[in-house]
């Protein structure tokens, strides 16, 4: 399948869900989609087009929490990054763990570092942060502030 066919398939099937498509280089495409279509788009990429799920990366842009799901189509050297923008106050998106096991760890990581809830994730446990870390403090949020008066990790940086 060629690069053009992949993009046609994507834009043809999800014409309403795709908010913007950034064809930045021969190797990179960024697609902004409606979060409701995430599972559909991911199923197309993973199941039908045989893409590999590289990872997801979340970012707090101050106006929204964005998650980028990076899929690579290795035979044609194309990275498709699917972007969803979520409400910063209560970010919620469908989990992809039902589609592939590779989503398990990264969703747990984004959950604790950015506070995104994944609908349908079976074991949303802590992955990296220690047990005593409060649930409502997310270290990668822009408004993160030191919560532990005895912490030494931010010594001298106040």
């Amino acid at each position: 399948m060629t690069r053009d066919q992949v993009l046609q398939e994507l834009t043809g099937r999800f014409s309403e869900a795709i908010l913007a498509l950034w064809d930045v280089s021969p190797k990179r495409v960024y697609v902004d989609i409606d979060p409701a279509a995430l599972v559909g788009v991911s199923t197309l990429l993973f199941r039908e087009l045989g893409a590999r799920f590289c990872t997801a990366s979340g970012v707090d842009t101050r106006s929204a929490v964005e998650i980028l799901y990076h899929y690579i189509l290795e035979p044609i050297n194309l990275m498709v990054s699917v972007r969803v923008s979520l409400d910063r106050k209560a970010p919620l998106v469908d989990s992809l763990t039902g589609l592939f096991a590779a989503a398990d760890f990264i969703e747990r990581e984004i959950h604790e570092l950015l506070g995104v809830n994944f609908r349908g994730h079976e074991t949303p446990r802590r992955l990296l942060l220690p047990e005593q870390w409060p649930d409502d403090v997310q270290p990668l949020r822009r408004d993160y502030a030191e919560w532990d008066p005895n912490a030494v990790r931010d010594r001298g940086v106040r």
Binding site: R52, F53, C54, F100, A101, A102
Partner: peptide, 9 residues
């Protein structure tokens, strides 16, 4: 297995 390798990425 090959299937598991793809599933786990």
């Amino acid at each position: 297995t090959r299937e598991a390798a793809i599933d786990f990425g």
